[in-house]
Design a protein around this nucleic acid. Structure first.
Lengths: 203, 203
DNA sequence: TAATATAATACAATAAACGTATAGTTATAG
DNA sequence: CTATAACTATACGTTTATTGTATTATATTA
């Protein structure tokens, strides 16, 4: 342990195993249905090792979520740093957001959203806000450069991105399309061109 | 309750709700991860009502499995009673078997097979045997009529059908094909024609 | 109305999961 | 080699979840 009472969690092999195993189990079964013991057994790790690295299950969950969030931000920045037209970058970002949600099982989403675990709900909230600001800044730049309509309220964009992610995960919505990919495409096109044909480029 | 200490379980609406809800939950999360309380809550039914109709969770599971088995037999007999060429009926039966397995979640299969719950393991065993005999009889008839090679050991057929069902659920196998359907088709063709081109009809 | 089905709640009994203590076993760096 | 850290195994007390029942009350229905 260091001065702050935490441990460098990525240092050990076993710790990585715990994290990866848990990520998998949570992914498929959500948070509630997976116990610490199950994680340990599946990871082939003693319970003591678990509690060496994590205070408890929630601590582990928060760590995993933070990690995923960091990955997301990295990917986002990677895309935005590319030297390609704004519209292309934006498309990639949207695709990332939409398909990122699809990754989780329905169960995971439930456990994540329904404020059943306050710590998790808080973290999710703060992640959303940070994400929101990150995107807002980039949109501000893009608008200055004339890449986005002047008359649109910028705050609408990160807000709508989140809504889109919800839609991409909504069973009812998915069932209206022949594949999740075609729904993704629909949402992207809608985001850029609205519903009017004149503005559209493809088709 | 009747003389034997059981109840006609299909009589009541609520009971149906319990059964259907449980079937859904088990389907997605397997047996272990689903509790009686969760079933009741999801079904909108009081716990007392549950215990009126079922001794416990296992009792419910067994009932559901029996029901599914009965459905399977009915479907099987329905197919075999059709007045079409043997090969066609056989294809349909195989398709039914293969796609029936795919219905379950991986979790459900695990709980079903791994003899974690002895009663369930027993039931599964006895179902397999009954199924086995059922098919064997039909194959015997078919062989008498000259619809199946004389020199094949009939016992091999129901045995191999079960193996095929396993294969159709095997992740490794599935990943080798572009879709589960194409794997199904492959297995069916293999079953009828082996690997030699001369015997094959299509392609 | 009498009988039946169901709900709501509280409750004791049981089981599962949690988190810690202890002791012993690899690994590994000095 | 040895001291230290990483880890395992297991047992254990505690807490929480689940089970199954008892009781009382309320709709439904024959």
């Amino acid at each position: 342990m260091n001065k702050k009472g935490t441990i460098k969690k990525t240092a050990s092999k076993k710790c990585r195993q715990i994290i990866d195993t848990a990520r998998n189990l949570f992914w498929f079964h959500g948070l509630r249905r997976v116990s610490v013991e199950e994680i340990c057994q599946t990871a082939g790790v003693s319970k003591m090792t678990f509690y060496k690295y994590f205070k408890n299950k929630i601590d582990l969950i928060l760590f995993i979520l933070n990690e995923m969030f960091r990955e997301g931000v990295t990917r986002y920045k990677g895309i935005m740093a590319q030297n390609v037209p704004f519209a292309e970058k934006a498309k990639e970002v949207i695709r990332m957001k939409l398909e990122g949600t699809k990754d989780f099982s329905q169960e995971m989403l439930k456990d994540l959203m329904q404020g059943n675990i306050p710590e998790v709900a808080e973290l999710m909230q703060s992640m959303k806000e940070k994400n929101y600001k990150l995107i807002l800044d980039d949109m501000f730049e893009a608008q200055k450069k004339g890449e986005i309509r002047r008359d649109i309220n910028l705050q609408f964009i990160p807000y709508f991105l989140n809504k889109m992610a919800d839609m991409a995960g909504d069973e009812q919505m998915i069932s209206m399309y022949e594949s999740p990919q075609s729904l993704t495409a629909e949402l992207i096109n809608f985001f850029f061109y609205g519903i009017l044909t004149e503005k559209g480029e493809d088709k």
